[in-house]
Nucleic acid binder design. Structure first.
Lengths: 221, 221
DNA sequence: ACATAAATCCACCTTTTGGCTTATATAATT
DNA sequence: AATTATATAAGCCAAAAGGTGGATTTATGT
């Protein structure tokens, strides 16, 4: 089989260089281009016309999802293999709907990548086994014990929680929302119950875990 | 100069393989071992006796900080270069106190890594320029507006604050630190005064703003 | 030796939370 | 019409946090 022409898209130069070294020396693929984010990748795409792209999800400027979407609009027959980390689980469904042909973990090895490239080039899909196992495990654990999440909270409760995250107490929140402090207390009690938190500081941690507050906004002060 | 014997510690196999390929083909170092987390690394350390370790921060089981600490206890003359990402800023000062010899960004290239390895092997420290710029930018913006910062807190106060950030109350922290709840209360009062926070939830926000807690650790639950 | 900072602990008191229960009005659903 | 979810509000009591003012011991530095 013909060695595929590929582009590597990842924001870490050393990772791209290492991967290129591997793919070249192991005679797996021709690395005809590199990009450090989605914008660079899209700019290169029609010019280089690669057979296949190895695409990282977590990148600045334009991430892997948007990149894949745009790339497939421009070149519908492009093969895309996503390089993913465990924590990216949220994206799998979106991506597979887009037409991405493979997912492979960064924790897998070059031999698995080689197989993935071969399968995808033959028109098959490839999903890292370890990754499939993870997703299945996650689905089952999500069904059994339904972890508390923001989806259980009412709009008003979220509003109260966000004000708690500003460091306000019941009375202050009450003034801000034009309701009684008792009501705020009710909402807070319901929040504690729904989230399973043991105290108000815990609610802040919950909000952060569930990305209800923008940590970057806090960070500047 | 003698090519150093090194160990690569990173949780992504493909990254290790790529880096090994690069370091070997470019004739920079002998990769005598690999580990995918801190535990594996520590287990290998005394057996392989490397000159230098390339250590990732963000790993499961035992992270880079703890690993560096343990490794330096076992082998005080070990050279350590930390592989870091921008978002790991919180760790720099802890790490440099431990005796880590270099920091390099994953977004730098093999040529910079080569220079870092050479410098560190000669007993010098190496800090990625881009990284220094980042830190300095951060420091200056912290110094101009003299807001309360972690530098005002004593070690014990920081310890208490970190436990507050786990959602524990005075009594629980007292048990954990083997001191009286009254003492914890004193520390918390001092924390409130020094930070200018109005309540305990505020302390959590302060800790996050000042990057005293690892948000990623919270993220798993 | 002395001053200073840090860590430890206690008492007293007020305010705020936390847990439990109840209740009403409204809107959406069945 | 009856049920359910939501938002609102209140009462009670216990627990925790917040504000003051102390006190002792242990390092640390000059």
């Amino acid at each position: 089989m013909k060695k595929p022409d590929i582009i590597i898209v990842d924001d870490h130069l050393i990772f791209r260089q290492g991967l290129k070294s591997l793919l070249t020396n192991e005679n797996i693929a021709n690395v005809i281009g590199e990009a450090s984010d989605g914008n660079e990748f899209i700019a290169l795409l029609l010019h280089l016309k690669p057979d296949l792209v190895l695409l990282d999800i977590d990148m600045p400027h334009m991430n892997g999802i948007e990149s894949a979407q745009k790339a497939l609009e421009l070149m519908p027959d492009l093969k895309i293999i996503i390089f993913t980390m465990f924590r990216d689980e949220e994206y799998y469904y979106e991506m597979s709907n887009l037409g991405v042909m493979g997912f492979i973990l960064k924790s897998s090895g070059i031999s698995e990548l080689e197989r993935a490239i071969q399968e995808v080039m033959m028109g098959e899909c490839y999903f890292s086994n370890e990754l499939l196992r993870r997703v299945i495990k996650n689905l089952s654990s999500k069904n059994t014990r339904k972890k508390p999440g923001i989806e259980d909270l009412t709009a008003r409760e979220k509003e109260v929680l966000q004000n708690i995250c500003l460091g306000l107490n019941d009375k202050e929140i009450a003034e801000k929302l034009y309701i009684s402090p008792k009501t705020v207390k009710s909402h807070r009690s319901n929040l504690l119950e729904k989230t399973g938190c043991r105290n108000t500081p815990g609610l802040i941690l919950f909000a952060i875990k569930n990305k209800m507050v923008n940590i970057k906004l806090l960070a500047d002060g």
